[in-house]
Structures are given as C-alpha cells and as structure tokens.
Design a protein around this nucleic acid. Sequence first.
DNA 1: CGCCTGACAGACT
DNA 2: TAGTCTGCCAGGC
Length: 122
Amino acid sequence: MITYNGERIVDAAFAEQVYEAVARIPRGKVATYGQIAAQVGDPLAGREVGHIMSCAPSGRNLPCHRVVNRTGALAPDYAFGGQEKQRALLEAEGVTFLADGRIDMTLHLWGKYEQFNIFDMS
DNA sequence: CGCCTGACAGACT
DNA sequence: TAGTCTGCCAGGC
C-alpha cells in the first residue's frame, strides 16, 4: 500500500485505478507514467505505475504499450518482448516515431497537444 | 532501521 | 531536447 497526504491507499485499489486509466488511453495516443499516476491521485508515484504495469494481469487486454516515459522513449526490452514489438503495436495504431526511435510526443501525447492534433482516433 | 534500486518526473543548465 | 541533479514512493536486503 502507499501513503499520500496521510491517507492510506490499498495497493490493489491503486493498481486497479492504474489499469482503468491505462484502458482509457485512446488509440493512436500515448500517456506518461506520471500522467497515469496523477489521474489515480498520486502525481508523485510514477515509479509505482511502472512497476504495476510489469505485474499487469494478462486477462484485461491492457494497452500498456501506450504508456511511455516523458521523453517518449519505449520501455526496456524485458517489458514487451522487445522494443520492436512495442513499436510495431504502436505503429499499427497510427503512432509515428522519430528517427531516433522515440515517439513523437508533440503529436501523440494524450491530453497535452490535442488542440494541435487533427486526428482523434478513439 | 538504513541503503540501494527502479517501465519516473521536475527544475535547471 | 539532452544531460544532470534532486525528489518521490515502494520493495528487497
């Protein structure tokens, strides 16, 4: 469990909210771990979000490949069976990558640049 | 307990 | 944006 502002939040409940938030990420967009953490009420627990993803239950069809760090870099190889895999999944949804293999955050970051994004594929 | 580590983030340079 | 330093939280030792 975690503590926040004196309140105690059950670990399982926290994870549950994380999964919900992740499930809400629209197709063709990505969110940062920090964003997810903020949505579930703990903006400072980005690391926890990452850890929770690693334990994500497989029965839920969670689009965890849409969650990246703030620079748009993909998760380490051990997360999706290779970054190639994750990249393929994202590209299949319309996410574009930069030459250095990172996601173009100015186009696909969920909730930050939509006003500039013509395409809203959800 | 303290210390180190990590799918992270923010402020600064 | 990249690099660096610092802050945060949980978990393992």
